[in-house]
Design a protein around this nucleic acid. Structure first.
Lengths: 352, 352
DNA sequence: CTGAAAGCGCTTACAG
DNA sequence: CTGAAAGCGCTTACAG
């Protein structure tokens, strides 16, 4: 009997979980053989019959390998952490779906860590997510927020973030998305746009602002006002109210996000105006909210699952010391009911 | 040198992470002392000076305990798994927030596992979430979906679920919420209600249907129609369209969820009617969507963070073999713009 | 007040 | 084709 009598960490916890030792004993083989068979490394090393006996014994005992022991031995956990700024947001939910799918395909686990602070240093995810990790994927976070992680020397892949921040970055073509919004609006005849910008200090929103300015430079239209908004529907409503009082001649509101755009629509209506007749509104992200509101939002669809999947592929590459594919993913404009040509008053240069 | 030459699992991976052995050597003490000091179990066993030396050495080396080794030794991981049917849903995001907060207070980690199938057996979360776990909290899932988990003999706490399903259940007062919706609607004068029910086979939606029928029994009002809807805005729209063609005399639509209610509002308007003038609509959950749409939704606010927090407390109790507190949490009706007295035509018994 | 030793459960290089 | 043994890094009961 090999059980360390005075060392047992736990003596009362219900039925004892079987170990590979138990399987070996039950199958009449060594622990090594059990490991080989169960890890599928037995071909040409263990006879087919023995393998079958081992598998049967494992099944009958309900054996499940102890992951802590395996990790300790292997020095690898086959687990990645996905850090996102918010769980509430569908975009991140979809990023997770994509990343988890690729992880599963490679027999990796995926653990999720919602870090409320996008820019501030996150509280130690190891104190919280706890699992031992092989690498980290962070979406739409500031590099500074990942300081603890980096200090641990873990491979880090950043998504929708400053390209210079980490060993690998997978990005969306934010600039192209904004350019298409501008083209769409200018094509409809809008000349005075306002920007409802997210008051969030992350690369993706800085990129949106920069792209908007750049895209506008090539057109006859101008940016007449920018207001910062807290990233909620109410934030969008309030910022838009400020925009329309400061720049009542704006005919189109470019919003950094669909939630902001939903709030903008509410603000427009509270001022007795109509969307899109009097004011056009655009969103960004194409969350399900975009089609829940009325009119439905013209917005930019981001390939959320795909960026998650590519992020996980990049992490796998880094882990295997291959060069990660850090291509920029294309986005698409989705035109819906919240945009239209500016109202007749505007087309004729009149005041509201 | 104690490193097992031919056993090293990994020879190339960058700077070697320091172990407690390195800290001990650097501080000139034994590994045991390091462990005692760092786990804060040294009082009266190690001198203050030695403790300080150990702490300094650990800091200087950037030592972090290997969690796999600790788990293996302790047989406990201080990690709980939260299984939710969807990440996209704010309700679950808030449940997670509450559960993670309580977990952190007790130095527990919290790992999230989104299981797309509410009712079907989930794919093995151990293959996927991978972390070694002390217990599981599952929100709004069918017991059958947790078969794998239960088979592992892990303590399980269920949230917003069939009270009979597990060793501990923490529930919301769904029945009371539905009763208040009915009181509100009947109080406004509605007599013909229809139910847009979620086509999801989970306890919480069955409870909502049952509670609606029960509440209605005590009133002069009647349920004139029930339509099942896929749990999306579009699903709500389609089901409502069916409701209003089958039961054009319904003056109020009770929806199982805010997304469904948002879809219902869209359907009403597509038929040329107004919310709430012609048809009142109610939601359930009070997601931020409820105030993003217009009119804002009358709905039932569920204490999502609190149920998460109580769930984690219950799990902690089970783990410590104390009796879990499985109280039912109160909910509240939030009356907003999507409900009003039935239109004049209805009040006078006329047809639309 | 401190250290030496055992052992948690696993995997793999090696010897047969 | 199979087994015995070492060791991953930690914590704790025990001996001093």
């Amino acid at each position: 009997m090999a059980s360390g009598r005075h060392q047992g960490p736990d003596d009362d916890a219900g039925p004892v979980r079987p170990t590979s030792r138990d399987v070996a004993r039950s199958a009449g083989v060594s622990q090594a053989t059990v490991s080989l068979v169960l890890r599928d490394k037995w071909h040409g090393r263990v006879s087919t019959g023995t393998a079958e006996v081992v598998r049967t014994a494992a099944r009958e005992l309900g054996y499940r390998p102890n992951l802590a022991a395996r990790s300790l031995r292997l020095g690898r956990t086959r687990t990645a952490l996905l850090v996102v700024p918010a769980l509430t947001n569908e975009f991140f939910a979809r990023v997770h779906t994509g990343a988890a799918r690729v992880a599963a395909e490679h027999d990796f686990g995926m653990v999720l860590y919602p870090s409320p602070e996008i820019a501030a240093p996150a509280p130690d995810p190891f104190g919280s997510a706890r699992a031992a990790l092989d690498g980290v994927i962070a979406s739409s976070m500031a590099v500074e927020a990942l300081a603890t992680l980096r200090a641990d020397g873990l491979p880090l892949v950043m998504l929708d973030s400053d390209p210079g921040g980490s060993e690998a970055t997978v990005n969306l073509d934010i600039a192209d998305g904004m350019r298409r919004v501008v083209e769409h609006l200018v094509g409809l005849g809008h000349r005075r746009l306002a920007h409802v910008t997210a008051a969030v200090d992350s690369w993706t929103f800085h990129a949106r602002a920069r792209a908007l300015a750049d895209a506008l430079a090539d057109t006859p239209a101008a940016l007449v006002r920018t207001e910062r908004a807290e990233l909620t529907v109410t934030g969008g409503l309030e910022a838009t109210t400020r925009v329309l009082s400061a720049a009542p001649d704006a005919t189109a509101l470019v919003c950094d996000d669909d939630m902001l755009a939903a709030g903008a629509c509410k603000a427009v209506r509270r001022l007795g105006l109509r969307v899109p007749d009097d004011v056009s509104v655009t969103g960004f992200d194409d969350l399900s909210l975009a089609t829940a509101v009325e009119p439905e939002l013209t917005t930019v669809r981001l390939p959320a699952e795909e960026i998650g999947a590519n992020g996980m592929r990049a992490l796998l590459a880094v882990l295997e010391e291959r060069a990660p594919d850090t291509g920029v993913l294309p986005v698409a404009l989705v035109a819906r009911g919240s945009t239209a040509p500016p109202g007749p008053a505007w087309r004729h240069g009149g005041a509201r």
